[in-house]
Write a protein that binds this DNA or RNA. Sequence first.
DNA 1: CTGAAAGCGCTTACAG
DNA 2: CTGAAAGCGCTTACAG
Lengths: 357, 357
Amino acid sequence: MEQKEDNLLSGVKEIARRAKVSRATVDRVIHNRPGVSKKTKDRITAIIEELDYQPNVLAQRLALASRGIVKLAVLLPGVSEETEYWKAPLEGISRAEAEIKQYGVQVDYYFFDQNDKAVFARQVQLIIDNGADGVLITPTFEPESIKLLAHCKAHTIPCVLMNSDVAGQQRLCYIGPELFESGYLSAQLVDYCLKEDQKVLVVNIAREIENNAAIIRKQEGFLAYFDKKLSKDLLVSFNSTDTDYESVAEKLNVVLETQKQIGVIYVTNSRVSLVARWLESVSRKDIILMGYDYLRSNIEFLKRGVIDFLICEKPQEQGYRSVMTLFQFLVFSTQVKEDYLMPIDIITSANYKFYRN
Amino acid sequence: MEQKEDNLLSGVKEIARRAKVSRATVDRVIHNRPGVSKKTKDRITAIIEELDYQPNVLAQRLALASRGIVKLAVLLPGVSEETEYWKAPLEGISRAEAEIKQYGVQVDYYFFDQNDKAVFARQVQLIIDNGADGVLITPTFEPESIKLLAHCKAHTIPCVLMNSDVAGQQRLCYIGPELFESGYLSAQLVDYCLKEDQKVLVVNIAREIENNAAIIRKQEGFLAYFDKKLSKDLLVSFNSTDTDYESVAEKLNVVLETQKQIGVIYVTNSRVSLVARWLESVSRKDIILMGYDYLRSNIEFLKRGVIDFLICEKPQEQGYRSVMTLFQFLVFSTQVKEDYLMPIDIITSANYKFYRN
DNA sequence: CTGAAAGCGCTTACAG
DNA sequence: CTGAAAGCGCTTACAG
C-alpha cells in the first residue's frame, strides 16, 4: 500500500483554508443554513464547485451520532402460521434497524391481524398517541390508513407505504410491487403454457376478498391480459373466503369435476400451497399451477413439480428499503424522488435455489 | 426527537473505564493483537462479552481513512458496440469505486478484447508488474488467468473471479452465475412453451465457441434438461463463428428452410438480437425466442414481442459486489465465506420495466 | 506490556 | 455574521 496524500486537496478543512474562513462557516454554506454574508457564501460556493466537493458520509453520520434519537413507527401484519409471508418484510426491517440503530434510530413495532380491522385501528391510534418521527405502514385497511396519513400530513411526519398503495394520499413514497403488472405478467406466463382448447382457473383464497386491494388489483391485471390477447371465455374462477384446506379442496373438487379442460390454475396470493396440496392428493400432474411468494411450503411444492411458477416481489428488500428511505430522509434530508417499484420475479424449480428475497 | 443516553453504556471507552485500562489496550484485545498480558486480556474479553460490544463501523472506517491507499486491479473486457454487455459490470464497479474511494481505495482498470488473447496476456503481465493489493478478473482466457492466479497465490494477493469461474484454482471467491443451471432453466422454459410436435433450435453465436466456457456450460445445462425430461431428438442446433448479421441470417435461412417444426429458438448468449432481427424480417411471429441479457437492443425486441424471454444475472451487481468483497476483505479483514451465486432472472415484456441489473 | 495524545472529516453548541 | 473548541467512536504511532 502506498501513502495517500490527495485527500488533503478536498474536505471542509481545505475549503475553509482557501476561503480564509472557519470550518463552521463552510458547514453553514454546505447545508444552506442562514447566517452567512452573501459575499462569503459566494466565495465558498465557488470553491466547493471548483473542488467538486463530496462530503464524507461516514464522518457526517459519526458527527450526527451525538444527536437525539429518531423514532420510527412500523405498522405491519404480525407473523403467524397462516401469514408466513410477513416474516420477510420484518426481516428486512430488522436488518435495516440493526444497521442504523447505532446512529440513534429506534424502531417501534405495531403489529396487527389482517382479519381484524379493530386491532389495526387501535394500533393506528397508539402510533398517534406515542408519537414518531417517521412512519412505515402496510395499509391493509384503507380508511384507518388514511386517518394515519392525515395525521402525518398535519404534523409533517414522513410516511412510507409498503407492499400496497393507497390512491390519492400524500405520503413520502410507496415501496412495493406494481400489482396490476404482476397480474398481467402471470397471465402472460399462463398464455405461454396454455395448450390448445385448455382453460384457466383463477382462484382467490382470502377472508375478505372484496376489501383486499392487492388481490383485486392483481386480478385486474390478469384479466386485462386475457381481454387484450386472448379471451375472457377461457377463464373460470372461484373465491374461497374460508382459508382452511378442507374448504378449498371441496370447491376444487366441484369445479374440476365440471370443468374438464382446465390446464392452468392461477392463485392470486401465497395460499397457492393449498391448491398444490389438493392437486397432489388427486394426482393431477397435468395441470400447471401458478401463485405467489417464496414461502417454505410453496417452495416444497415447487421442488416437487406441483407448483410450476411463483411470482415474488422481494418482500425482504421492501422492508429494508422502506426503513432506509425514512432514515435517509430524516437524518440526512435526502430527497425522495419517487416511488420504488419492486421487480416482479419469476421463480421455478430451476432457479429458486439462487433467489434472494 | 428524544435525547439519547444509552450509547454511553457500550463503546471502547466504556470497556476501558470498566477494565481500568486505556482505550489502546482495549483496541489490542478487540483486534487480537499481541502485547497484552493474559490477565488484562481476560478481564477485557469478559467485559466485551458482557456488554455484547459491537464496533461502530463508521468510526472504524473513518479512523482507517488515514492509512495508505489500497490498490485494486480490475481486468475485464472493454465495452464496445459489439460487447455492450460489459457496460453493466463496469457500472457496478464504478459505483463501488465511488462509494469507497474516500476510504483510500484506488481502482486500476485493465481492459482487453474478448477476441484477442494477446491483449489479455499483456494486461495480466501489466497487473503483475504494476502491483496490486487486490485483483478482480473475468477469466475469459483460462491459461493466462491461471498464471495471474498463481502470482496472486504466491504473493497472497486476494483475487475475485467474476462472471465465470475457473475450476480447481485457489481464489478469494467466485461471484457470478451458475451457468449450468442457467442453461437448465432455459430448457425448462422452453419445455413449458413447446407445443406438440415442435422442435427446438439451439444457436451459438461467438467467435471462439469451443474456448468459450460460458457458452459451453450453459449448453450443457440446457442439454441435461432435455436428456432428463424430454429427448435430445427434439433438438436442432448450429454454430456461427461469424457474429455479423448477414452470416447469422444466412444460416438461419438454411436451417429454418429444412426444419419446418421449429417452435422455439434458444440463443446461448446476448447475441439473441441478431436472430430477432431475422425473425422480424421474415415475419415469423409464431416462433418463440429466448436468449440472454438485458441489453438495449434485446429489450427493444422484447417489447415488440419478437424476443419472448431474456435470462439475466444481474451483471451490474456482480461488479459492485466483487469490488466490495475485495474492499471488505482488505480493509476490514472480513472473512469471505463462499462464492456468491447470482440469481437467474427471467425477463419478459411484462416485467422488464421493473428489472434492475 | 501499557497509556497519553493526536487524528479521521464533519457538526454543533456557545461566545462574540 | 463568524470562529474556537469540543465531540462523534475508533485507531495508531510513539514513548515509556
